[in-house]
């Protein structure tokens, strides 16, 4: 039982981080219908900026964090304005290829600037593990979870209550109508990329803080696909729930099944769940179902 709870809590903690990264993905997809395959690389760039600020420049964590957010926002803005703006109306497959190309470019850039060697952050949080009742959680994982949840909550509040958030939801709902309501749809697209990039980069910070930074840190982005597809590509609540499901399934499978078959189940299990759920609910758990009226 104790083993189960241990796996469950670390699953929840990891799931919270997945949820944040998935949020970065969903924010962009919801407003612009673009599947951003470079989400993982946005994370990686965020982590490297943080590394440069704290280790290379020796600045304290909080200002470095703010610089990461500004840098990530700028990256999202540039990508949207210089590349994707011009792809409007092009076939989906071309746009997907562009984001895949972008991910390779960012990875190459990171290798040129920071080399492919493994880097790590200075210790940000007290090293002692967090103890809740009988449970012991690694400190980096616990604080990563806290940061992720706070970020997700802030984004959710913006979407629900702030004018900008309402305008973004309207843009996601119906672009023509949004335009007619006086919403500047183009700047909403830009904003979606800025928000998406910031969410991903904070995710990158957390992952980098737990496991170090290298150019292929973004590989974790692959795990985000089961998360977002599980939740429905365009649902923020779904992304959060999907994150937890994937984190928990992964950890339970890793803990119970890996010793039996000699490893590997941990990485496959989320995809097995994904396939099963999609067979039952093709639009994901919370995805928008287009209802055809005849």
């Amino acid at each position: 039982m104790e083993f189960f709870l241990l796996l469950l809590t670390s699953g929840i903690a990891v799931g919270g981080v997945y949820a944040l990264i998935a949020l970065g993905f969903v924010l962009i997809y919801k407003a612009t219908s673009i599947i951003n395959f470079a989400t993982g690389e946005f994370m990686m760039i965020g982590a490297y900026i943080f590394y440069s600020c704290t280790v290379l420049a020796g600045w304290p964590a909080i200002p470095s964090f703010l610089i990461v957010m500004a840098g990530a926002g700028l990256l999202g803005l540039l990508v949207e304005k210089t590349i994707l703006r011009h792809m409007l109306g092009q076939p989906t497959i071309s746009i997907i290829m562009v984001t895949i190309g972008l991910s390779s470019i960012l990875m190459g850039l990171a290798e040129m600037i920071w080399s492919s060697q493994f880097k790590s952050f200075p210790a940000l949080f007290p090293r002692a593990p967090i103890i809740i009742g009988d449970l012991i959680i690694r400190s980096n994982l616990f604080w990563g979870f806290v940061v992720a949840m706070v970020t997700v909550a802030i984004f959710a509040l913006i979407f629900k209550y702030a004018k900008v958030g309402v305008a973004m939801r309207a843009t996601a709902g119906d672009q023509l109508a949004a335009f007619s309501m006086g919403i500047n749809v183009r700047s909403m697209f830009t904003l979606a990329w800025i928000f998406g990039s910031i969410a991903a980069s904070i995710g990158g910070l957390i992952v980098g803080n737990i496991g170090g930074v290298q150019p292929n840190l973004g590989g974790i982005g692959l795990k985000i696909f089961p998360v977002v597809i599980l939740g429905g590509l365009d649902s923020i609540g779904g992304a959060v729930l999907g994150g937890f499901i994937v984190g928990i399934v992964e950890n339970l499978a890793g803990g119970y099944l890996d010793p039996l078959v000699g490893g590997g189940v941990k990485n496959v299990a989320p995809f097995v769940v994904l396939v099963i759920i999609l067979m039952v609910r093709p639009y994901g758990l919370f995805g928008r179902k287009e209802i055809e009226r005849l």
Partner: peptide
Amino acid sequence: ALFRGMTVLDNIKLGAHAH
């Protein structure tokens, strides 16, 4: 061209958004 996921009231509220 309504915002389908939203309620009637939310749709109307968005009308005032232009200002």
